[in-house]
Simulated scan of single mutants.
Amino acid sequence: MKKSLVIFYAIIIYAVAELMWWGYMLVKLNPSRTGMIMGEGSMFVVVFLIGAYFLHKSMNKEQKLQEQKKNFLLSVTHELKSPLASIKILLQTIQKRDLTKAQVLNFIDKSLLDVERLDDMVENMLLASKIENRSYTFPKAEFNLSVLVDSIVNRLQISKCDCNQQIINAEIEPKIEIIGDKFALTSVVTNLVENAVKYSNPCETVNVKLFEKEGKIHFQVADHGIGIADNEKGRIFDKFYRVGSEDTRNTKGTGLGLYIVKEVLDKHQASIKVKDNRPAGSVFEVVFA
Rank of each mutant, 00 (worst) to 15 (best):
A17W: 10
V46M: 14
D120I: 01
N201S: 14
S151Y: 01
M59H: 06
L112Y: 10
Y24T: 14
L192I: 01
V188G: 02
I11C: 09
V153S: 02
E18R: 09
M121Y: 08
I108E: 06
Y241R: 00
G244T: 11
C163V: 12
V264A: 02
A17R: 07
T248N: 12
D223H: 11
S42N: 05
T100L: 05
R97V: 05
F219Q: 01
C161W: 03
N30I: 08
F44E: 00
V264D: 03
E194W: 02
S111K: 01
N154A: 10
N277I: 00
L19V: 04
L118N: 04
S187P: 03
Y199F: 11
S111C: 07
E116H: 06
E177W: 12
M43G: 10
A52T: 09
D150A: 10
L80M: 14
N207K: 12
Y199Q: 01
L127E: 00
V45C: 09
L265N: 06
K70F: 14
G227H: 08
K275E: 11
V149E: 01
N250W: 05
V287C: 05
L74V: 05
K96D: 07
F183H: 09
N71V: 11
K64M: 14
N133A: 14
L65P: 03
E232Q: 01
L265C: 02
G225S: 11
S146I: 01
P174L: 03
F44Y: 12
I217K: 07
K233Y: 00
K70I: 07
L210F: 01
Q66I: 07
K101V: 11
V274C: 10
L90R: 06
N71P: 04
E67T: 10
P83N: 09
E263M: 13
I89W: 09
L74Q: 10
T248R: 14
G35K: 12
V221K: 06
E67C: 02
F107M: 09
A15W: 00
V243F: 13
V274I: 15
I178D: 02
K28V: 05
N71C: 05
N154L: 09
A289C: 07
H268C: 08
V283M: 09
V104M: 08
T251G: 08
Y136A: 00
F288L: 10
N250I: 10
L265M: 09
N30G: 02
L113S: 12
K160C: 04
E67M: 11
Y136D: 00
I108A: 11
A222H: 00
V274D: 01
I87L: 03
N144P: 06
L19F: 14
L49E: 08
K69W: 14
D238P: 02
V6Q: 13
G257A: 13
M38I: 15
T186Q: 12
E132P: 04
Y14V: 14
V45Y: 04
K267Y: 04
K252S: 15
T34S: 14
Q95G: 05
L80G: 05
S200Q: 00
E132L: 08
V104E: 13
L145T: 00
I217D: 03
G35R: 11
L5W: 13
K70G: 07
Y241E: 04
